[in-house]
Design a protein around this nucleic acid. Structure first.
Lengths: 261, 261
DNA sequence: AGATATTTGTTCGTATGTATT
DNA sequence: TAATACATACGAACAAATATC
């Protein structure tokens, strides 16, 4: 009656997943360490194969382990990747009423500080990438697809900077905001009027930022980014109001399922 | 050769999960809608029971569906809850080097704006809750546990405000930061020197904030919160440097697993 | 490069548990 | 209470992938 076994109302697979997770979060366990194979886990937890597989699937979805087949395969502890975390968080905002205005409200706040903190952390490769992105966005786009690609590259410019911000929280938040905006670009028609002038303004701003980074001028980066965000904010203000945050689905085949209430 | 089926290297269960997710994200599908039962999904996707169960488990972990047994049970579409999203994101930061200084750097930035945006959105119940939290933190703590509880309630004070911020992004980010700090309080000894003076400063700040909210004085809320965050920042500066972001595990039983490299 | 061993991935049949009616 | 409808769980067998020799 007092045994923990009788108190569990949860699913067996969740219990197993929780215990493995606890082990995996304990001291000394880190990325690369391998879990016992399914057979051993089955006997250790005294559960069937399906249960173990559900537990491992749960950990896999969370990005905590990676599975592989073959000799020396199995589940291995994995550092949660940014893409995994961002995708999972994207699910949450799918159900929130998230307007582009709200996204930019956060962006105006976060991007200048994050960009300023990145000063002094850019590598030579980063600089080359930034130059390449600036140049790629400078050409007059011929097709609508090219225009879309340029908008995504403008966002990638900011991503390069955010990745170098030494504050993991701010870095993640900025990258996530850029991801949300990328999804907006991909899923919505983002060809605003006056797109020509906008592209030019972005170009000027990015060039100015690049120069400031080259000089390690934190003050100027902060100031330039603040102005840049103000401009972007204005451009976006004339866009549609409500956008449902989306993540890119990697599926192509669509299967219709019955909806039964 | 060109068929998508031949291009898939992914697991069958992932394919199924992706397709169900695509259906679930399509227009007209929302929280509460029920998925077909396992039997039907098996025949529809032409896969075995284990595969379907793994797919549903993946969606369940993401918080997108909830499972239940019994008649009219099965998988039902669910809005992703804040707790789910925060827990999954917490996994990501577990592997990041996240110092309390970094957390406060983000907090100083986000909290004043988020708090200011919440002005005008507090309910009478919110006000009562805030008063209750202020009062509960005013008493001199007798035991160390009480002191810890008070610190958690100070954070809850900020959570009440963040929940009312109409910008979902800022609201989430502030609540998540508070969660990170809660975990710090729970998992680390947070009894700083001069804790007496700190508690009093917090009390004064919270009272001032409450008054400003009562008057719908957005300016003053912003200003008071900015000062409050500066103070908290200073207090925390004298704390241990690196903290690994944690989530509360709901398991109690510990099972040691072999570590095999 | 090919064969083999190892380990996950998937299926099917069956039995049990649980909530609804 | 009993019948029903559904998820949950076990176990054995087979398929597929992959590292190693």
């Amino acid at each position: 009656m007092s045994s923990p076994l009788f108190l569990t109302r949860r699913k067996l697979s969740d219990l197993v997943a929780g215990q493995i997770k606890e082990w995996l979060m304990s001291a000394g366990i880190g990325p690369g360490d391998r879990l016992p194979q399914e057979r051993d886990l089955m006997s250790r937890f005294d559960v069937g194969k399906g249960t173990i597989r559900e537990a491992l699937k749960a950990l896999e979805v969370q990005g905590l382990v990676r599975m592989s087949t073959g000799p020396s395969g199995g589940a291995a502890v994995s550092e949660v990747r940014y893409e995994t975390a961002a995708g999972l968080l994207g699910n949450y905002f799918y159900f929130q009423e998230l307007s582009t205005e709200a996204i930019y409200e956060a962006r105006r706040l976060l991007e200048p500080v994050t960009a300023a903190l990145a000063v002094g952390h850019l590598t030579e490769e980063d600089f080359r990438r930034l130059e390449q992105l600036i140049e790629s966005c400078a050409r007059e786009p011929e097709e609508i697809d090219e225009r879309r690609r340029q908008r995504l590259e403008e966002l990638e410019f900011h991503n390069v900077l955010a990745r170098r911000c030494p504050n993991p929280l701010l870095s993640f938040q900025c990258r996530f905001i850029n991801k949300l905006l990328s999804d907006v670009v991909v899923f919505r028609k983002m060809y605003v009027p006056k797109q020509r002038r906008i592209a030019q303004e972005n170009h000027v701003a990015h060039v100015e930022l690049l120069e400031a980074y080259r000089r390690d001028d934190r003050e100027r980066v902060h100031e330039a980014m603040t102005r840049h965000m103000e401009e972007c904010s204005c451009h976006v203000a004339e866009l549609e109001a409500v956008v449902r945050a989306r993540f890119l689905s990697d599926e192509t085949v669509t299967v219709s399922l019955d909806r039964q209430k």
